[in-house]
Design a binder for these strands. Structure first.
Lengths: 337, 337
DNA sequence: CACCCCTTTAGAAAACGTTTTCAGTTATAT
DNA sequence: ATATAACTGAAAACGTTTTCTAAAGGGGTG
């Protein structure tokens, strides 16, 4: 069927060894011979079978990426960053979506290992899998890098967004522009939510103002927006938005959008009467009216950086490391300037 | 390093042939022998090397998916559908993002073929690649199915969303709920936009009303929303929204969102003064206030169906075919009911 | 009962398409 | 002349599946 190295060798009148050498250029071949081989390759349009290659070299030039969801604009940008970097460096990528299920995540990783991928990136790993030590074993077999997720005192490789910094800046901005009482909205349970809540509490205590934490039910992207909107609507009788509290900071842009939708429905003017700041800077944040002020996590860079680390590990060996990606407050229209 | 079929054979005291046979169950093996082998496999935790397997069987149990963008909620759901179906049937998926570049699409397909994927799904193929005959050659090598895109008189396999039907229904609904003058907004050039424009024109002529076609510049998702908003804003002096025209139908939900944003800014009440219907039913359409009425394309099903077709081709041989997926008008809050 | 034929079961070896090791020959430099 | 470098090929290796060959067992026939 397909043309093999044997056909080329025959055509050029050399051994397959020589053909292999001119292909890989890792061994001296006489100029004249090389030329003959190259002509044969071109003439027959020969392309080395990567499978045969993989078998002997134990290298597949592929990486696996496991991600909780792909209908989530956050992850989508991370994956985009990974894909671009990987492809630029001629790695192909396998995709596996786990729906945030811990078992599914483990299965995905094991499947990738069986497939002999050269490396694995896990976006937002399940905390229990990190803590169980599962990955500490895996990492002896194949390099793994994680994008975000729980990483305290864990000897694994992470690319982490500097959420503290960005979140603190958002809080500061709100306060600097005259807001004292600021609502905090978070989801049910996640390392990142806890992190932000702690910062929020400390900040509020520092400026001596009133704390208000709203926890909304998780779910898919649509549900997050919906649930947040409902939650805001339901507290709006108990608490006067725009008076008792004049600002709100949300753990992500979906929640912020939900808040915005609630304000629209309640007739509360954003940002004139009420300021909102989201987090992440997903594309949605530029599709609302007013456009959301938010903290840019640079998901694309998170993805690129994780891919860069992974490829380095593949080439030069694995060694646990953590790299921090800066976040940046981006002021748009949903808060005072 | 890893345990091979040889280790198992030695452990069980049989030949590798026998081990292979109990693994694949394609040849009679004495009950007792089988048991011994199975125990050895379990004891050593043997997993056949898929690469060696691929080399001899010429089957990789993987499919390639090429998609213009992954930060586009439309494609994202298609990919989600494909991934789920493929994984359920134990195929792994390779992902390649082309950014809508025709050359990149060709490269992606060629790369996948070099990798010996068992099949390829191309989402929204570039019309020029379809017309050039490129794929008609490819299809002799490996099955390919397309999701949407140009498909007139083309002898290739498509899963197509029945856009005509859904679009017509949306138009009818608008007219039935008292709208006569309806604006049509489309992007620059695409088979699907042309299709809808033709239906629109015919419909408007039929009901004897005034035609107004607004073409907005393409770009990424954010730009589409933005450009549409600007376009609406700029025609709003020339044309009285809510008076001259009381409704609008857009070629996709991003455009519809842009329109909605413009109305919000202009103080035009949706749907009381102005009705909007989008197209696609991407998640964004449920995140706006009011929620967008739209035509559901069931992208997930498009993905699933294309994967189903592809796997059938892989098992039973390729044969060009077209299957139509129904669309459905979903009425929410952005238009009269 | 001996013989033959067929079925069941099993292994040796070839094949898949590469890379790499080993051995060897020729040319070049000292 | 000799050591070294440049160049080449045969064969082993990677880990499977599959083909080919064959032994063992069972049942029917003369």
């Amino acid at each position: 069927m397909a043309v093999t190295i044997n056909d080329v060798a025959k055509e050029a009148g050399v051994s397959i060894t020589t053909v292999s050498r001119v292909i890989n250029g890792n061994y001296p071949v006489k100029q004249e011979t090389r030329q003959r081989v190259e002509e044969a390759i071109k003439k027959l349009n020969f392309q080395p079978n990567p499978i045969a290659r993989s078998l002997v070299c134990r290298k597949t030039n592929s990486i696996g990426i496991v991600v909780p969801s792909i209908t989530n604009m956050y992850f989508t940008e991370v994956v985009d960053g990974i894909e671009k970097y990987a492809r630029m460096n001629s790695y192909d990528i396998f995709l596996n979506i786990t729906n945030g299920d811990a078992k599914a995540e483990i299965n995905a990783v094991n499947k990738f290992i069986e497939r002999y991928v050269d490396g694995i990136i896990v976006v937002d790993p399940q905390t229990e899998n990190i803590l169980s030590g599962f990955y500490n074993e895996i990492v002896n077999t194949v390099p793994v890098v994680f994008v975000n997720g729980y990483h305290q005192e864990i000897d694994l490789s992470f690319v982490i967004s500097n959420e503290e910094n960005g979140f603190k800046n958002a809080l500061k901005h709100l306060n600097k522009t005259g807001h004292k009482n600021i609502i905090f909205v978070r989801g049910e349970s996640s390392y990142s939510y806890d992190l932000k809540e702690n910062i929020y509490k400390k900040f509020i205590k520092n400026i001596g103002s009133r704390e208000y934490i709203l926890t909304v039910n998780a779910g898919n992207s649509i549900e997050v927006v919906e649930n947040t909107k409902k939650a805001i609507l339901s507290i709006s009788s108990e608490i006067k938005l725009g008076e008792d509290f004049t600002a709100l900071i949300a753990c992500n842009d979906l929640m912020a959008t939900g808040v915005l939708n609630a304000c629209l429905e309640l007739g509360i003017k954003v940002p004139d009467e009420f300021s909102i700041i989201g987090f992440d800077n997903i594309i949605l944040s530029q599709m609302t009216t007013p456009k959301l002020s938010t903290v840019d996590q640079n998901m694309k860079k998170l993805g690129e950086k994780s891919a860069e680390m992974l490829l380095n590990y593949i080439e030069s060996g694995y060694e646990a490391d953590k790299v921090l990606i800066n976040t940046k407050l981006v002021l748009r229209e949903s808060c005072r300037l």
